[in-house]
Design a protein around this nucleic acid. Structure first.
Lengths: 218, 218
DNA sequence: CGGTTGACTCGTACGACGTACGATGCGATG
DNA sequence: CATCGCATCGTACGTCGTACGAGTCAACCG
């Protein structure tokens, strides 16, 4: 991450008239198309050749805009994590909830992002969210000494919830065949309906509410 | 996951005398060596050819014991997540803390595991840990209605904390170059020392304590 | 004792992938 | 018209996962 040095110049503000037919290659188009491809085919579905096909260009043309395939992953991931919401209403708690739920929703909309996140460095959009979270909590009266624990607790919770959820979606196919295994060997799990409960949103929200209750008085 | 159908038979209880020289191939040896290789070279360092080299065998011999490379990943991941601790002391809170901290430690000892977890189905050792957690919390007096939220809150927290930490380790290399960026654009993060604080264990423990305080009375 | 069978090993080969390299086209500038 | 930087792309190479089928050897059976 940080400063990859492809030969590409700084993006222009798009002052070109942009004619008919195939639009020209650009970083933005490449990243947007990569996201489409990832959404449609998953992590392993992103091949440089396929990406080029979708863009109507030659494979090697991509490499003028992008350093390598890892770069594409980084850019796609960060583009998906951008936050467009606002902050600074009267109700700091609503601000936090909105931002965190939006984050979770963004990642679930692009399930590959959860798989990618643990092995990529922190992109600017992730840092921006952390900054937003810090600022809001700080403004809400959380003491400086407690700030780090509060931020990380929330962060970890959301991150973990999202990744767990993605992981479960992945194993849905195995669920049927694995069900017997669960029923016979894990009685407590079975009794609690832990793996069957489909109300992920509700559980997520309850835990988050609970966490916030503890972190700062309503 | 679940029932992969390699041609391998059920593992024998090792009744063979096991002679000198290169030991024969076995699922256990393959998995153990895969973990070594992953520890040494990371996710991308695991190649079937390299694995075979380390084992002193031909590449294709692996495929009698294993379905494919994904199978190796699944087995390596699950083998690393096995919990050998006990449960059922007087102090349920200590039991939970021990199990969760052991989990985090296991994953940090094998950083590739955090990257792998989100895209793999739930293995038996993960389910076993969930079962243990459920049983302990249930025995500690957490009401059935609150059980799911409690389990998931803890689970998500640990999962998120571990993955965040791994992610930060990864970006350590970029830290120096990215530091200016952080300092200039993210003032609140900078002021709180959020990205510089090296006491991850302490923060992890504090948040966990806090979470447990809320989930069940001391 | 020769023949058969099943467990296990492995050499060769193939298709797919990421990408290095150098040629090519093109608009702007002198 | 000549030059130069931007942008594109065809070809080729090395590496990967693994399909296929031949090989070895011990155990078993007639």
């Amino acid at each position: 991450m940080a400063a990859k040095s492809s030969k590409r110049s700084q993006r222009t503000g798009a002052s070109v008239p942009e004619p008919r037919g195939e639009p020209p290659l650009s970083l933005d188009r490449i990243v947007a198309t990569a996201v489409e491809l990832l959404d449609a085919e998953g992590l392993d579905g992103l091949k440089m050749r396929r990406l080029a096909d979708r863009l109507g260009s030659g494979v090697m043309s991509l490499y003028w805009h992008v350093d390598n395939k890892e770069d594409v992953f980084d850019l796609a991931l960060d583009s998906v994590l951008e936050y467009r919401g606002t902050i600074g209403s009267q109700d700091w708690r609503a601000d936090v909830l909105h931002m965190l739920e939006d984050w979770r929703a963004s990642m679930l909309r692009h399930p590959w992002s959860a798989s990618l996140l643990p092995r990529r460095a922190l992109g600017p959009n992730i840092l921006a969210r952390l900054e937003l979270l810090s600022k809001t909590l700080s403004g809400a009266g959380v003491a400086d000494a407690d700030l780090n624990v509060a931020i990380w607790s929330l962060w970890n919770y959301v991150m973990g919830a999202t990744i767990t959820r993605s992981s479960f979606d992945l194993s849905d196919a195995d669920r049927a065949s694995g069900q017997q295994r669960v029923e016979h060997h894990y009685p407590t799990i079975e009794r609690s309906g832990l793996l069957l409960d489909d109300d992920w949103d509700g559980v997520f929200r309850k835990g988050l509410d609970f966490l916030l209750d503890g972190l700062a008085p309503r």
